[in-house]
């Protein structure tokens, strides 16, 4: 662990009686990067995140954030001004306006500014006078993000930041998180949206039943665990000749052919087209399936992540 790491979690364990929420998790997060904890609900992501911000005292193991121990009162007091947190499901006072909340939370950090600019960063610039209780779920989450970032923290903790958000809200949030990364912030987020982890994170930990089962960049996880690309097409009068047999595993059902390609599928595709041309056969209904993070997740954990969009929450 060097000073290049903003967050270091070492052999973290959290037990509640007989229930083990986190069983031995270790990772570190480089300064200026976005780190994602990806897993199903109940995998231990939130417990891990809350151990980093002093909401949960670890049963054993250590956590350091910017060199501070969040389980220590004094360290936590020094850490608080430098961290920003967006929690799941905080309900803000219903009769409070967006502007009032931003201003009040600003006073917690010694800010005396106009909240209009931070509000417009999260797309709430025209809603400063709107009551928090009248905001949509997605707007409330964008407000929660604004409350987390307006004091320019060095490290941000986002717990399921886009859960239940509409497409626009997610887009705004992703854009904002990207901008924060460019400005050098360190972020750690939990998510059960594969797409979100793949789109945002420099590095992903896949968490299953309180343990890290894989950790790498999204591309490396896909390359290592996602399996091979496959090519599917229909071609009347086609046959797999000797020149094609070495490209991978072939299967066919009538005129429909499937190749699970070994290596780069582009190369295989070129060979197939060339061969078909030589035969004078037309290729139709061609599909190229590249492995995704979802395939990698399934291969690693042996289970599918819940379909996030089917959740009402």
């Amino acid at each position: 662990m060097g000073t290049a790491d903003a967050i270091v979690v070492d052999r973290l364990v959290k037990r509640y009686g007989d229930l083990t929420a986190v069983a031995d998790i270790s990772f570190s997060v480089r300064r200026g990067s976005i780190f994602g904890l990806l897993g199903r609900n109940g995998a231990g992501k939130t417990t891990t995140l809350e151990s980093c911000i002093g909401l949960i005292a670890p049963t054993s193991g250590t956590v350091r954030v910017l060199g501070f121990d969040p389980a220590d009162r004094r360290d936590l007091a020094r850490l608080r001004p430098r961290m920003g947190v967006q929690l799941q499901a905080t309900s803000l006072p219903e009769k409070a306006t967006v502007g009032e909340l931003l201003r009040l939370y600003g006073t917690y950090y010694g800010l005396r500014g106009n909240p209009a600019s931070v509000a417009s960063r999260v797309g709430l610039g025209d809603k400063l006078d709107r009551f928090a209780g009248k905001l949509s779920g997605g707007e409330q989450q964008r407000l929660a993000l604004a409350l987390a970032l307006q004091h320019d923290p060095d490290v941000l903790f986002l717990d399921e930041p886009t859960s239940g958000m509409d497409v626009y809200g997610r887009h705004v949030l992703w854009r904002e998180i990207g901008a924060l990364r460019s400005s050098g912030k360190t972020m750690i987020l939990t998510t059960h949206y594969i797409e979100e982890a793949e789109h945002l994170c420099d590095e992903i930990c896949i968490v299953q039943t309180g343990k890290i089962v894989a950790r790498d960049t999204p591309a490396a996880l896909v390359a290592r665990y996602g399996g091979d690309a496959s090519i599917e097409f229909a071609a009347r009068g086609f046959s797999v000749g000797a020149a094609l047999a070495g490209l991978g595993r072939w299967a066919h059902d009538g005129d429909r052919y499937t190749l699970v390609a070994r290596g780069e599928p582009g190369h295989a595709l070129a060979k197939i087209v060339e061969y078909a041309n030589a035969l004078g056969v037309t290729i139709a209904a061609l599909d190229l399936h590249r492995p995704s993070l979802e395939d990698a997740f399934l291969a690693i954990t042996g289970e599918r992540i819940e379909d996030p969009r089917s959740e009402a929450a």
Partner: peptide, 13 residues
Amino acid sequence: EKKLLRRVYLTPL
């Protein structure tokens, strides 16, 4: 219950 105390606990207030 509304988790407002948790939220405030995370700030320097």
